[in-house]
Write a protein that binds this DNA or RNA. Sequence first.
DNA 1: GCATTAACCACAG
DNA 2: CTGTGGTTAATGC
Length: 224
Amino acid sequence: MDLCSYCKKKSKATGKLDQNELEKLGQNCNQVEFKKGEKIMIQDALSYSIVFVRKGLVKIHAMGPEKEQILRIVKGPAYLGIPTTIGAKINQYSATTISKTFACFIGFDVFKDIIKNNGQFAFEIIVELCKNELQFYKKCINQVQKQGPGKIAEALLYFSEKIFDNQNFSLPLTRNELGDLTCTSRETVSRILSDFSKSNIINVNKTKISILDKKQLENISKMG
DNA sequence: GCATTAACCACAG
DNA sequence: CTGTGGTTAATGC
């Protein structure tokens, strides 16, 4: 199986593995193809594996006391489930695909062994975890301090820049989910999107979004 | 008080 | 699933 050799090019961390480790990984991981909307990890389930998302988009979400909360959107290639597998016995969150996704389940024991034996690999994993944490801090501040338009503007810029690298994209979330992501209601998302559209900042057609005035959007995001 | 913001409800498409 | 309108509550001049 040459899957892991392929991923060696895709993932910085996997790139640090030697042939031996790659083979060991190959023997202990298995690729799965997911359709849009399928669950990769389930909150409250016991977790035994780390998931490597080769390609695709995944939403990380958890059920709160009131409602569903989308924590972040993950774009492959990326590791999934490291915090919850290492830091807790049961999954603290769910992961659901929002596009067609190819992912590999890696046995935790093998993953742990490689971390312990390969500092370069471990370092790259730490880099990824650190970046995620910093981004999460930013999201927290954004959510608590910005008001509606600022939150939506930031989310749109995030999808445009970080996920699709394009001014035009098809939003992989419903309005409701976008609300769950930005801590607003579905109605507020609708209203703000149509306001942006009326001001010619964006163009909206169902899930298709075009950013027309990026400067303006950045400004709204910045001002809150 | 008055304005702004956003959630909740309801209803239509 | 979405878009909109009315209502209501909180917050800040």
